[in-house]
């Protein structure tokens, strides 16, 4: 579904991604972990071109999205993204947050978008918040609404950029539960996170990144129980 070829990204002299080759297949739940500064967020943000790759190609559903002529707006409609800082639109109600993009892009009529939004809100049990504004919500509620806002576009893949890092510990669970239930439904997911339990439980594959490279990848069981690369062993010994 997503193929990354020789991806390089530099900020000035700083090489953040160093020649990454990776394929993510339909239905996979790929969790990316690594120390801070290892380039995992940049890698994720390159996948939908929020960061422009310095070199290399990214293919999504048989289209080269790094091509100059690619219609990036159309491609992004199929790649949902969830941010660490939620990035809900504070001037719009919860309902408008969810329906804005589908209506603006002419994918759904206003009525259809509203039905879809209410259905999604019902799923996360927040229908009564439809007319509230984001500043009236808890962090966990915000992030769950950010997730269904992305889902309202019917994406083929969901990218999560440290979705629980800005949350109070007691709210992490509700967000991870929603992500796990998405995974169960077969959504293709790429998740950058520090939640190792989530990685163990949900991932089909775990990538370890360090200094702009994917150093090791494996199934979660092998990855956590039998790490091979010394850098990964050191990393896991510190956090587990």
């Amino acid at each position: 579904m997503i193929t990354v070829k020789n991806l390089k990204k530099t900020f000035g002299d700083n090489m953040v991604l160093n020649n990454i080759n990776e394929t993510i297949n339909k239905g996979e739940k790929v969790v990316v972990i690594g120390p801070s500064g290892s380039g995992k967020s940049t890698f994720l943000r390159c996948l939908n071109l929020l960061e422009e790759p310095t070199e290399g190609e990214i293919w999504f559903e048989d289209k080269n999205i790094t091509d100059k002529n690619a219609n990036i707006n159309q491609i992004r409609q199929k790649m949902g993204m969830v941010f660490q800082q939620f990035n809900l639109f504070p001037h719009l109600s919860v309902l408008e947050n969810i329906t804005l993009a589908p209506v603006q892009l002419g994918i759904m009529t206003k009525a259809d978008a509203k039905d879809k939004a209410m259905e999604l809100l019902n799923r996360i049990g927040l229908t009564e918040k439809a007319d509230s504004y984001p500043n009236k919500l808890s962090g966990g509620q915000k992030q769950r609404i950010a997730i269904i806002r992305a889902l309202a576009m019917n994406p083929d893949v969901m990218l999560f950029d440290e979705p629980t890092s800005a949350l109070d510990p007691e709210m992490v669970g509700e967000v991870l539960d929603l992500m796990a239930s998405l995974a169960e439904e077969g959504m293709t997911m790429v998740v950058v996170t520090h939640e190792m339990r989530f990685a163990k439980k949900v991932a089909t594959r775990v990538l370890f990144m360090d200094e702009g490279k994917i150093v090791e990848q494996n199934t979660p069981d092998e990855f956590f129980d039998n790490p091979k690369h010394p850098r990964l062993q050191e990393f896991l010994s510190k956090i587990l």
Binding site: R76, L100, A101, R149, A150
Partner: peptide, 14 residues
């Protein structure tokens, strides 16, 4: 905040 632009763009809006 730049995140607002990113959120809008990530949803496919121009």
């Amino acid at each position: 905040d730049n995140g607002q632009m990113e959120a809008g763009r990530s949803l496919g809006m121009s």
